[in-house]
């Protein structure tokens, strides 16, 4: 019998809570739900959760304020943000403010399962990291890189193009990669919209969000044949796209410099 996994759902819509609960319980997790952020905070103090799924538009305290509250209280439970008002701004803002994932409503069952799975894996890695401090579980991204949330990185090349890839922490939160689906050259990427599809051996499909917007100059075709490159060398040989950025200056503001990861 494995340890019970507990998920907290915060949403002001009954039907959404029911939907997520249904998905989570069928996956074998136990679920708690509240209709607003204040009650959520109370719940968090009284019991421990492995993952929080939180709506952005909530009565009283909204999702972003809730994130800030968690940070100030040093609660490290990973948070997945979701909203019906699924704009790119909301997605980027969520990831910038500390949410580990953003999933727009309405989501399919499979999308939600993938997100929950990543969130829980992330949580267990963090827990492990805490318990044995000296071992390196996750290779941090190089200091001059920038990341969107915890999952994607960019590196500005000298010729003005930008390399995009997946962070080691993202790769660690998904199972062994079976298949990678890339977009083709010349296609446009928009920040915080799906850019890469990973099919993993556990049957899940994971979407990696694009870190910035731009036009694809080149794809790393090597990944098709050897997806393990992503795991072996996520920050160099494991790059995914080379982009011509279209709104780099604006979008950079909402990225997290990887140098801040080393303290």
């Amino acid at each position: 019998m494995k340890e019970e996994v507990k998920i907290l759902i915060i949403d002001d819509e009954e039907v959404v809570i029911n939907s997520i609960s249904k998905i989570a319980t069928l996956e074998g997790y136990s679920v708690d739900s509240v209709l607003d952020a204040f009650s959520a905070l109370q719940k968090i103090f009284s019991s421990k959760y492995d993952l929080i799924i939180c709506d952005i538009m909530l009565p009283g305290m909204d999702g972003f304020q809730f994130l800030a509250e968690l940070e100030s209280k040093r609660i490290e439970t990973p948070v997945v943000m979701t909203t019906g008002y699924s704009t790119i701004e909301n997605a980027v803002k969520s990831l910038y403010n500390g949410a580990i994932e953003f999933i727009p409503k309405p989501f399919t069952v499979d999308e939600m399962i993938s997100v929950i799975s990543r969130g829980l894996r992330y949580n267990s890695i963090m827990k492990l990291k805490k318990s044995n401090d000296d071992s390196i579980l996750i290779v941090p991204c190089p200091a001059k890189y920038y990341r969107l949330g915890y999952s994607g990185w960019i590196n500005k090349e000298h010729d003005g193009s930008v390399l995009i890839g997946a962070t080691d922490s993202f790769i660690k939160t998904i199972d062994l990669i079976k298949k990678i689906e890339l977009l083709s050259v010349n296609e446009k990427l928009t920040q915080a919209t799906p850019a890469v599809k990973f099919e993993t051996v556990d049957g899940l499909v994971h979407q990696l969000y694009s870190v910035i917007s731009g036009i694809i100059l080149a794809c790393n075709d090597r990944l098709m044949d050897e997806p393990e490159l992503l795991e072996k060398d996520p920050y160099f040989d494991g790059w995914i796209y080379r982009l011509v950025p279209t709104e780099l200056d604006y979008e950079m503001k909402l990225l997290i410099p990887c140098s801040s990861d080393r303290s």
Binding site: S19, S86, T87, T108
Partner: peptide, 24 residues
């Protein structure tokens, strides 16, 4: 659109989830 999106996406979540389950 924002209002409509918010209002419609919640019920759509229900429809999508439950129909997917029925499918399964």
């Amino acid at each position: 659109a924002a209002g409509v999106a918010h209002e419609i996406n919640n019920p759509l979540t229900g429809v999508l989830t439950y129909s997917s389950f029925l499918l399964k």
